[in-house]
Design a protein around this nucleic acid. Structure first.
Lengths: 232, 232
DNA sequence: ATAGCTTTAATTGTTGACAATTTATGCCTG
DNA sequence: CAGGCATAAATTGTCAACAATTAAAGCTAT
């Protein structure tokens, strides 16, 4: 089992510096993991008790979760776990298409050769994983995010990186959990990843951006279809 | 003096529902306006006293300002007003180019006819303003943001709209204040706005996106040059 | 005189109590 | 019996005191 989750940098830091920060991570994990179901009412006193802290830091955690759009909050009324409807998912995928397309363009210009090599090796690992596990969904997905994360990081654009990694990828994880498994797409995705990596290696900015955008909008079309089929 | 600031939706709500929210708006205005200079150390007790509230809501305001990147905060050490260096500005303009390009594409697809007409009338007002005031900088700038805001809104993409309006436009305002005036560009910008509006009216998604991206990357080139000339 | 350690002050993180607002309950009236 | 007003409960917003951590000042030793 290859250790491809190393560069993720999201679920680390459980031993963080502050109570609010740790609680933020915990709740985030609970929401993404599904322990806290979508639409659940968040009651500050209850959660404070549950996580064994006082309401102060908990409020801070909630506010940060609101910024990430994992929680919606109406003043004086309370907050609930976000419920992802089709429209919101579409908005997220479109924003991601735009930002990651630009990231791929920048990566083609700026990614150093050794990182490009490492990216290629990562895709080799993915191919091996697909062969072995017949597309065991979980690792595929984390591997997919790992690929996208590396390109975002290679853009050397702090704003884009933070918003992809801190916000959009979390929501994408939730979208995927909601729309269930689609292991058939594993090989297709890998092929597209290879093409994108090749464009970056060739320093073809234009193509890298186009391929990335096509890759993501394609992913959205799949998710969209699944959601439509379900609601009939 | 035409009232073109109506659709802005940013500096409104001084009579908001909660203390933290009002304070957030006040501090934000003070930072953008320059009363709180870049790099200023933020001391919670001092600010709480200055704004006449307790540290609780003030902390919430600070955290929100941190999310918007108007304040940088290191745990246990304190927070300062952000200092915009050239790299950060570039990151912001690039992110904006990506997102607004996509917004323009979506607007070309989705903007209703009456909004397109209103957009055109807005540009007429801008032209009149340029003629009358010989490019009085302030109104030009707010007018410019007004134009861009309408397109972002027309994208009907909540994520993009919130992040442009809530985060990037504020930072752009700071960038502009820092790089000083350049009234010569007023007519150029207006021409480009006209072309973008025309592409949207023609429902030409591809062209609308390309023109918007060119418009913004051009704006960055100007700002960049000013910053370089200054530091020599 | 300076480098490094110790002690002190300033600032942030956390807590529990209090005030304001909203939502739910129940009573009264038409 | 239904609708609306008044009251009560629950929940969020705000405050001021306390604990923990970091930055600064002062001191000693080389």
């Amino acid at each position: 089992m290859p250790e491809t989750v190393s560069t993720l940098g999201a679920d680390d830091a459980l031993e963080s510096t502050t109570l609010a920060s740790r609680t933020f991570d915990s709740i985030k994990a609970d929401i993404i993991g599904g322990e806290l179901e979508q639409g659940t009412k968040i009651v500050e006193s209850d959660l404070a008790l549950k996580y064994g802290i006082s309401r102060g830091p908990l409020r801070e955690a909630i506010h940060r979760l609101e910024q990430i759009k994992l929680i919606v909050r109406v003043p004086h009324a309370g907050s609930r776990v976000v419920t992802l409807d089709s429209k919101m998912m579409q908005d997220i995928y479109i924003a991601r298409e735009s930002l990651e397309g630009m990231a791929a363009r920048l990566a083609a210009r700026l990614m150093p050769e050794d990182e490009i090599r490492a990216l290629s090796e990562l895709l080799d690992q993915h191919e091996a994983t697909i062969g072995k596990t017949d597309g065991k969904a979980y690792f595929q997905r984390e591997g997919d995010i790992d690929f996208h994360y590396r390109i975002a990081a290679a853009s050397r654009n702090q704003w884009i990186l933070e918003h992809l990694n801190g916000e959009l990828y979390q929501l994408i994880r939730m979208c995927r959990r909601q729309s269930g498994q689609f292991p058939a797409r594993a090989q297709t995705a890998l092929d597209q990843h290879r093409q994108i990596a090749a464009a970056i290696a060739r320093r073809d900015q234009e193509l890298a951006e186009i391929l990335m955008r096509r890759h993501i909008s394609g992913a959205w079309e799949i998710v969209k279809k699944i959601l439509e089929d379900r609601h009939d």
